[in-house]
Amino acid sequence: MPEFLQNIIPNVLKKLPALWEATLETLEMTGISALFILVLGMALGILLTVTRKGGLMENTAVYRVLDVIINLLRSVPFIILLFLLIPLTRIICGTSIGVVGSIFPLIVGTVPFFSRQAEAALAGVDPGLIEAAQSMGCSKPGIIFRVYLKESVPALSRGITITLINLVGLTAMAGAVGAGGLGNFAYVQGVQRNCYDIICAAVVVLVIIVQIIQIIGNIIAKKSER
């Protein structure tokens, strides 16, 4: 068996510790940026939902501004956003390279996407429920937390799953241009040194990470669905 592996993935075996480290870096980038993305995106999603026409705190001006900013950010391809943000990233993260330097662009690149996912999930809450809660004298924060968020858990967990999977892909892209992680590993060790088995190994690990996220997401969505 070791001999067989030696034949098909000789380079990977030599770089196993580096592969492991790259995997951890990818998880680190994903995890840290995900924390910010979920909180910020959720807040924006809620804001979009309540300020839209007919919303709980209808405010056309706020809605329009957010809407335009989100659309603008979403129309910039991530690879360009990475370069575009370099000066800002330096100010905020202290560096524009490595795992730390990738967090800020990942957040900026993914928050707009997730805020739309969150908005869509919240829009799926039956307006009748909001009306019922209002008729019971429920406060606005009460309606947001006890009705909107609680009732949209299945849809939200699906949105979060999609977002996290996207994010894993973006970390790889960020990695290829200087951040760490599996993207960087595949590019530096694989592409530049012409070691095809390294690229494949990075892909396999990414596939596993994505699968795990998808499976967990499905379980939560299913469990919360009534």
């Binding site: 039956d126 009306e131 019922a132 008729s135 609680k150 009732e151 858990v153 919360s224």
Partner: peptide, 14 residues
């Protein structure tokens, strides 16, 4: 003032 509705409007997750 209690209120009930045509489509009941119960919270499905509760």
């Amino acid at each position: 003032i209690g209120m009930i509705f045509q489509h009941f409007n119960l919270f499905a997750s509760r």
